[in-house]
């Protein structure tokens, strides 16, 4: 099998891993602050629609489309993040879930977004190196962030928010930063995938999509950056391997989610595990 036909057969999956990797990293940011937000699919949707509309309705270059796809969800995240991030735990999860539904319904009912039919004929501008480049830059950014003072603040907030605030950490600002950066990354992933998949419909960005993104991060684990990437790769490849199961295919995702929570609460990637075993 030569390179070209191999690439033709598998490029969808490989680009899918890249885009899902970005999405998993976007939720990783908020999860590492101990916040469960389910709005990432909605931000991806906003980014995808905004980017696609820029490319379809104007003659501006692709970079502008991607810029809009990144900045619009980030702006939305600032606007809803300021009031919503006062909530904690399950209240935050449910509020962001509600926001996701509102976004989906708005996309479903607006004229410019094509309603239930969605958008068709988006110019296929995304090349493989766009996705790879974005993924590498995002990984570098997140790794740098994790090592910085900000990253330590994330951890402090996750462990004990009250204690973190007493130590002089601006918890509100830092949580908002994680939320907005996550939204921007999710939006960028949406913009990239819209210019690759050619079509968009509101159903792609509903609750199921939000849960898929969460599953990737939980499966991989939030102990480090490789975790979400591993989760994204596994959950992109798995449905292809399970094609034979047809309608039962999604059952595997559900089962994985349950099993990981029950038996592998830290996810697959736990660097500490090896170290501990070696010292024992």
């Amino acid at each position: 099998m030569d390179w070209v036909s191999w690439w033709n057969a598998y490029s969808d999956i490989i680009l899918g891993i890249g885009i899902n990797g970005l999405l998993a990293l976007s939720i990783y940011l908020t999860l590492s602050c101990g916040l469960l937000t389910l709005a990432n699919a909605a931000f991806m949707g906003i980014g995808a629609y905004a980017g696609a509309l820029v490319s379809m309705q104007t003659s501006w270059p692709f970079s502008v489309a991607l810029f809009v796809a990144t900045s619009l969800p980030a702006t939305a995240a600032i606007l809803i993040g300021i009031p919503l991030l006062r909530l904690t735990g399950v209240y935050l999860a449910m509020a962001t879930l509600g926001f996701g539904e509102v976004v989906r319904i708005i996309l479903l009912n607006m004229d410019i977004t094509g309603g239930a039919l969605g958008l068709n004929g988006i110019p296929p501008l995304t090349q493989w190196w766009h996705v790879l480049g974005t993924l590498i830059l995002t990984v570098l950014l997140v790794v740098a962030l994790k090592k910085s003072k900000m990253g330590r603040a994330f951890e402090a907030i996750r462990e004990d928010e009250t204690a973190a605030r007493l130590m002089g950490i601006h918890t509100d600002r830092i949580k908002l930063f994680a939320f907005v950066l996550g939204a921007a990354i999710a939006g960028l992933a949406g913009g990239l995938s819209a210019h690759y998949t050619f079509t968009l419909s509101p159903g792609n960005f509903g609750f199921e999509a939000a849960v898929d993104i969460l599953t990737m991060a939980v499966l991989g684990g939030i102990g480090g950056v490789p975790g979400p990437l591993m989760g994204a790769a596994i959950l992109t490849i798995l449905p292809e391997l399970l094609r034979g199961l047809q309608d039962y295919r999604m059952a595997a995702n559900g089962l994985i989610l349950v099993m990981v929570v029950l038996f592998l609460p830290g996810g697959l990637w736990q660097p500490g595990r090896f170290r501990k075993r070696m010292s024992c």
């Binding site: 469960l36 735990g89 399950v90 999860a93 849960v211 969460l214 599953t215 939980v218 047809q246 309608d247 039962y248 295919r249 999604m250 059952a251 995702n253 559900g254 089962l255 994985i256 989610l257 349950v258 929570v261 029950l262 609460p265």
Partner: peptide
Amino acid sequence: NHLMPMIATIGATILMTSLAQG
């Protein structure tokens, strides 16, 4: 952690929906 039951029951829902679909 209180988020764990939420995540696990989401998984159970996906499982149940998929079984019903099948």
